[in-house]
Amino acid sequence: MPIFMDFHDLPEGVSPKHVAEMHQADLDIEHKYNCRGLTYWCDEIRQTAFCLIDAPDRQSVIDLHQNSHGAVPQRIIEVNDTIVESFLGRIEDPKKSKNTKLNIINDPAFRSIMVVKIKNKTLRVSEKNTLKAAIRGYTTSINTLTSHNNGRLVKQEANSFMMSFKVVTDAINCGIKIQELRNSVITPDLEFKIGISAGIPVTEKDGLFEDTIKTSNYLSAIAQNDLFITTEVKNLYEGENKNIPISENRSVRVLNSTEEDFMTRLMDYTEKIWSNPTTNVNDFEENLGYSKSKLYRTMMQLVGKSPNMFLRDYRLNKALERLEKQDGNISEIAYQTGFSSPSYFSKCFYKKYGILPSNLHSD
């Protein structure tokens, strides 16, 4: 049977004990609806609860809750148990303490999600082996740092990492340590791009932590060898640390609400149009609602690139991914990634990476 996670917005005054009683009420009659309640998370501060249930369908989850305690969830999504465990650390109730009637679990599902991307600045043949060795070493160290800072490695693909942390301070400290790791070794042709945001597992989207993951990915996409975080992450960090501010000399960049909004609109639009060769800066100005000069200033301040360069580099990154996977010939990849001709694509690729795409494609 599929597994579902639901979201409950708790009324004022509902305690972890009340949620434990509701969970027990589900377990008492779950067999009537062919369901199996696996576990739940309760966040008294944010007044939220999330249930994980093995059930035939969403309606069975609703019927179970309706007839056991009457609290119908605001949202239900289908999830993968392995992914749930990788983010949240468990998929079953922890063992109940001895001599207690209820299994009271005061354990929030709120998580900080960190995305780390290691990017090559160059692909020159003379340095490729050195860069590969450096990346292998960084991969081992990043995994170790994640564990030492109480994080969980959720996903790793090539040179990209995604981690989950219960405590924002742990996520920030891990990100800073990863930055220090990069700075401790001379690898000028690698850049580390790190983004951290925070949120709940179930929103209006269909995927687990989908909104938070998207924000962290966007932050890492625009980060300039810094640790980019949201204002919410900053506030949570300072709340956990007696209002001690995040030190600016740690290369932590906090995006304000206006910058976060611009980043989201910029990345959402770029993801829609990047493969269209007719898209240009005028389209960005029109769709983002910025004048030419304001768009340029905002992009340089936030991303460190002009709109033209940002779009070109975005396309080149997509092309590099396809070249490394041998996903089509060079002409096909050039057109698929929004370049007007293979010759122009090769020229831009060489300028950025110091190697022709034909040399990379033949490796």
Rank of each mutant, 00 (worst) to 15 (best):
N241H: 07
N282I: 11
S251G: 11
E238D: 03
L208D: 06
Y290W: 05
D283C: 03
N276A: 07
V233C: 05
M300H: 10
L255K: 05
L219Q: 04
P277Q: 06
L208Q: 04
F209G: 05
Q224V: 10
E240I: 05
D283M: 09
R297L: 12
A223F: 05
E232N: 11
T264V: 14
D206F: 14
E240S: 08
D189H: 13
I194A: 00
E259S: 10
I178Y: 07
S257C: 12
T215Q: 11
A223Y: 02
E204M: 14
I213R: 07
D261M: 13
K305L: 15
V254M: 00
Y269N: 07
N256M: 05
I229N: 00
I229H: 01
T203R: 06
E285F: 01
R253D: 02
D283N: 12
I196G: 02
N217Y: 09
G207D: 08
G199I: 09
Y290S: 05
T278D: 15
I222D: 05
K193G: 09
L255V: 03
K205L: 15
E271R: 14
I196P: 02
T270S: 13
N241P: 03
I186Y: 15
L181M: 13
S220Y: 03
I200Y: 14
F228H: 03
I246Y: 01
I194D: 02
V254N: 07
G289H: 09
T231F: 07
K292P: 00
